[in-house]
Design a protein around this nucleic acid. Structure first.
Lengths: 198, 198
DNA sequence: TTCTTTATAATACAAACGTACCATAAAACG
DNA sequence: CGTTTTATGGTACGTTTGTATTATAAAGAA
C-alpha cells in the first residue's frame, strides 16, 4: 500500500486554497485548476480527494464552519458565564476582527448566496442554522433579568437577523469592528436590566 | 434609417429576463444565450444592446434598484407623514411580500455578493447605499419623540444593519413576512415614546 | 425611389470549465 | 522479495462560455 496520508489534512490544504482564491477574486474563480495551483498540487489530486466540485464546496463550507464554531467556543469560555456576557460573546463572534474571521464571513456569504440562489424557487432552504442561533440567543435572554417591556422571543429573532448584517457591514468597511461592538453593547444595555433594578 | 425602437424598454425586456433566470436557477445561469432565449430574442441582440456582460449586469442592477425605489416612495406617500409612520414604511419596504419584491431582494443579494467578492481585497466597496439609508433613518428618528435612553445615531446604525437580515430571512422562508413586520413594530414601539409620555 | 443607417440574425471562435482516462511511483503487507 | 493497493501526475474530451464576424431586412431621409 502507498504512503499513508492524512486525508483530512490534505483536504483542508485544498479547501484553504479555495478560501484564499475566493477571498482574492471571488468564488467563481475557484476552479479545479486554480485550486490545484494555489494548493501546489495537481488537478487530478483535487479530483481524487473530492471527486466532484460540489463536494469540494461542501467540504469548504464545513471546514469554515468548524473554525467559526471553535472560535465562538473560545470566546464564550473566556466569559464569566453570566447571561449578558455569554450573549455578548456569542453576538460579537459574528464580527470579523482578523483575517481568519474575515475569510470565514466572506466564505459564508459566498456559499450562502450560492445556496439561496440554487434553491430559490424550490422551497428547499437551510433554516437550521438561524433557528439554532435563535434558540441559543433565546436561552441566554431567558436567564438574565431583562428590562421591562422586553419580549425575549422577539428580541431573539431581531438579534438573529441583526448579526449577519452587522458582520457584513464590517466586512465591506461600511463600519469599523469597534462601532459594531459598540452597537451590540448599546443594544444589550437596553435589553438587560441593571443589577440594581430597571 | 431602421424602425425607431425604445432602447430603454428593449433593455428592460432583457434585464427582466436576467431577473427571471436568476430567480429560477441562479445568477450563474444567466448566460447570454439563456437571457436571449428567455427574452425571446437572438443572442446578437443582447450583445447589441449591452455589448459586454458586465454592462448587462450593471443595467440589471440599476433597473432593479429603480423599481425598489419607486416601491418605497409609494409606501412612504401612503403614510400620514409622522416620523414613526414614515420610518415604519421605510423599514418594511425591505421585507419581500410579493413576487416583485422577492425578485428585487434576490437580485440585490446576488449582485451585492458578486460585488463584495470582486472587491474583497481592493478596499473599493460601495458604502454609499447603506450610508444613505442610515442618514434617512437618522433623519426620521431625530424628528419623533424617542423613549428615554435611545441613542438615535446608534439606532440608525442598528436598523440599517437589521433590515437586510430580516429581508433575507423572509426570502429564504426562515420567517414569514408577518413576523418580520411584527418584529419591526415591536422594535419601533420600544424606540418611540408614547404620545402621552415615555 | 434610392440610399443610408440601424435593428436583428446566424454562426464561428478561442478560451475555460468540469470531468474522464491512462499511466506511474511508492509503500505497506503477504 | 514481490504483490497489491493507493496516492499522484499528465492530458485529452466534450460542453459551455463570452465575444467577434459576417450578413440581411427594414425604415426614415433625400
Amino acid at each position: 500500500m502507498p504512503k499513508k496520508v492524512d486525508h483530512d489534512a490534505r483536504r483542508r490544504q485544498m479547501t484553504d486554497a479555495v478560501c484564499r482564491i475566493t477571498l482574492r477574486s471571488g468564488l467563481g474563480s475557484a476552479t479545479f485548476r486554480a485550486v490545484a495551483a494555489e494548493a501546489g498540487v495537481s488537478v487530478r489530486l483535487v479530483q481524487h480527494y473530492f471527486g466532484t466540485k460540489q463536494r469540494l464546496l461542501e467540504y469548504t463550507q464545513r471546514h469554515v464552519g468548524e473554525r467559526s464554531t471553535a472560535r465562538l467556543m473560545g470566546w464564550i469560555e473566556a466569559t464569566d458565564g453570566s447571561p449578558r456576557a455569554v450573549l455578548e460573546a456569542f453576538l460579537k463572534s459574528f464580527i470579523p476582527t482578523d483575517e481568519e474571521s474575515r475569510v470565514a464571513g466572506l466564505m459564508y456569504l459566498a456559499l450562502y448566496t450560492e445556496g439561496v440562489m440554487a434553491n430559490a424557487g424550490k422551497g428547499t432552504v437551510r433554516r437550521t442554522e438561524s433557528q439554532m442561533m435563535e434558540s441559543a440567543v433565546l436561552e441566554q435572554l431567558n436567564r438574565g433579568p431583562l428590562s421591562s417591556g422586553v419580549d425575549p422571543q422577539a428580541e431573539a429573532l431581531l438579534l438573529t437577523a441583526l448579526m449577519p448584517g452587522l458582520g457584513q457591514y464590517v466586512m465591506n468597511e461600511t463600519m469599523t469592528a469597534d462601532s459594531a461592538f459598540a452597537t451590540i453593547d448599546y443594544h444589550l444595555n437596553r435589553l438587560f436590566a441593571a443589577p440594581y433594578g430597571p
